[in-house]
Simulated scan of single mutants.
Amino acid sequence: MLSSDGTPKTVLITGSTGGIGKETARGLAALGARVILVGRDLSRARQAAAEIGGRTEAIAADVTRLRDLTRLAADVAARCDRLDVLVNNVGAHPPRRTLTEDGVELTFAAHVLAPYTLTRLLLPLLTGRVVNLTGGIPGTPIDPGDLQAERRYLGWTFSQYNHTKTMLMAMSLRFAEQVAGTGVTVNVAYPGHAHTPMNRSMTTAGFPYAYRPLVPLLRLAAPRLLADLAKPARSSIHLASSPEVEGVNGAYFDAKCRRTDWPAAALDRRAQDAVWALCEELTVSLAL
């Protein structure tokens, strides 16, 4: 991954000290990129960077906090004169409704507000691609009146997790419209399913009662069927690095790196408006 001047491209990846994010970092580092890992714990991020090797470095930030996002953007600007690729990979799955220090529902903060805010903050540095990672089972209808699950919260499979991942897709489409023609592109990657550290911490608390007996079965089967994390990282790596997607904007790619149709829920203009407006409202203090 070299820029036009022959220097390594710089890639920033959130949620990259483990799971799919770490494998995405590993894959891009192997292609010669300068990779900046972002994790909540600096020692863990540094350990991951040392393990991956190459031109890999680490920054600590909790991207569900607006103050950390602001600091992260300033830190990146101090280190880099440009950012070629931003991969918004971080995920969260609290079994119960949880608020961040900014009073934002945690899953929405991780999956929607953080990618929106960090991308906006880094636009002056960005020269190329933004890759937003969806997941779970996206595509369920977006409820514009309950974006932060104030009325009803379900964890895991039936869930605010999936709801926010569809919201991420809707927000990404709107962002792609905003940056069209600037040289920056915004696309969404679907990784498929994986046995990540996040999923290994699964409890029954977020499941509807009727489905809680499935949890032991999932714990038994997942390590055997979904252990290879390099496979679900392929779509992110493809969107971040492949010459085939140079200039492609506002597209959705599946786990096999194929361009595919957006779910109808993400295309809903009313839902896009609601998600975008909430992101703007929650970040008004940052003057974005």
Rank of each mutant, 00 (worst) to 15 (best):
M1S: 08
D5V: 11
P8T: 06
K9A: 15
I13P: 05
I20E: 06
K22H: 15
T24C: 11
R26W: 13
A29I: 09
A29P: 03
A30G: 09
A30D: 07
A33Y: 04
A33R: 08
I36E: 00
L37C: 04
D41E: 10
L42M: 07
A50F: 04
E51N: 02
G53F: 14
A60L: 06
D62G: 08
R67H: 15
D68V: 06
L72G: 04
A74M: 05
A74I: 07
A78H: 15
V87C: 03
V90H: 12
R97C: 02
T100E: 01
G103Q: 01
V104A: 00
L106P: 00
L113N: 09
T117G: 00
T119L: 00
L121W: 02
L123M: 14
V131C: 01
P138D: 01
P138N: 05
P138G: 01
Y153I: 03
L154S: 14
L154W: 15
L154P: 05
T157M: 15
F158A: 11
Q160R: 12
K165N: 06
T166E: 02
R174S: 15
R174M: 12
F175V: 05
F175K: 04
F175N: 04
E177G: 06
V186Y: 01
Y190A: 10
P191L: 03
P191Y: 11
H193L: 11
S201P: 02
M202T: 15
T204M: 02
Y209A: 10
A210F: 12
R219V: 13
R219N: 14
A221E: 14
P223Q: 13
P223M: 10
L229Q: 04
A230S: 14
P232N: 15
P232C: 13
L239N: 09
S241R: 11
E244D: 14
V248D: 14
Y252Q: 12
Y252A: 14
F253P: 00
D254T: 02
D261F: 05
D261M: 04
A265Y: 14
A266I: 08
A266W: 04
L278C: 07
T283E: 07
L286C: 03
L288A: 05
